[in-house]
Amino acid sequence: MIQYQINMPISAEQFIDVLRRSTLGERRPIDDHECMEGMVSNSNLLVTAWDGGKLVGVARSMTDFHYACYLSDLAVDCDYQRQGIGRQLQILTQQQLGRHCKLILIAAPAANAYYGHLGYTNLPRCWVLDRDQGLQD
């Protein structure tokens, strides 16, 4: 039986491992330990799914808890997908937020169709600025 935890600390190694076992590891800097450690330690909302002592899912967010919650990473081990774990991670994330707070995310290309049936609205107005582009002095 899957157990869920709110803000239970995890290590960068555990985070990297679950990303590798999901499809999200392909789009994250999993070989940059410093970056991965910063991602884990600077998140302010972390919902995890566990099968015994094995981390099988994670929803990692940055939020003000009242208006906006950026769900930066939603990853479920491929062996555990299609069991409702990702949905439950999002439900538990949303339950931690105030009534006006919106979940905001950027969908992985392969997962883009997943979010519509959950009630998300697809908005074409997202912009991304990489560190090495633009805003130069």
Results as ranks from 00 to 15, higher is better:
Q3H: 14
Y4A: 03
Q5G: 03
N7H: 07
I10N: 01
E13Y: 08
E13T: 12
E13M: 10
F15D: 01
D17E: 14
V18N: 00
L19E: 01
L19Y: 04
L19A: 05
R20H: 06
R21H: 12
S22W: 00
S22Y: 00
S22L: 02
L24K: 00
G25T: 04
G25I: 01
E26C: 04
E26D: 15
R27C: 06
R27I: 04
R28W: 02
R28C: 02
R28I: 01
R28N: 05
P29M: 13
P29D: 09
D32V: 02
D32Q: 14
H33L: 13
H33A: 11
C35H: 15
M36H: 02
M36G: 01
M36L: 09
M36Q: 07
M39V: 07
V40W: 02
S41Q: 15
N42G: 11
S43Q: 04
N44L: 12
L45N: 02
V47P: 00
T48R: 02
A49Q: 08
W50I: 08
W50K: 08
G52F: 09
G52H: 11
G53E: 15
K54Q: 14
L55C: 00
L55E: 01
L55G: 05
L55T: 03
V56N: 02
G57C: 06
G57E: 01
V58Y: 00
V58A: 05
A59Q: 04
R60A: 06
R60N: 09
R60T: 03
S61R: 00
S61N: 13
M62I: 13
T63N: 02
F65Q: 14
F65N: 14
Y67F: 14
A68K: 13
C69A: 13
C69K: 05
C69W: 01
S72A: 15
S72N: 14
A75C: 10
A75E: 03
V76Y: 03
D77M: 04
C78Y: 12
Y80H: 15
Q81C: 05
Q81V: 02
R82V: 11
Q83G: 04
G86C: 09
R87Q: 07
Q88I: 04
L89Y: 01
L89K: 06
L89E: 01
Q90A: 07
T93N: 05
T93E: 07
Q94E: 10
L97K: 09
L97F: 02
G98Q: 14
H100G: 10
I104C: 08
I104R: 03
I104K: 07
L105D: 05
L105G: 04
I106G: 11
I106C: 11
A107L: 08
A108W: 03
P109V: 11
A110Y: 12
A111C: 08
N112C: 09
A113G: 11
Y114P: 02
G116C: 09
L118Y: 10
L118R: 11
G119F: 06
N122D: 15
L123K: 12
P124D: 09
P124H: 07
P124V: 11
R125E: 12
R125H: 15
C126L: 14
W127S: 11
D130G: 13
D130V: 10
D132P: 06
Q133V: 13
Q133R: 08
Q133T: 14
G134I: 10
G134V: 13
G134R: 10
Q136K: 15
D137I: 14
D137N: 15
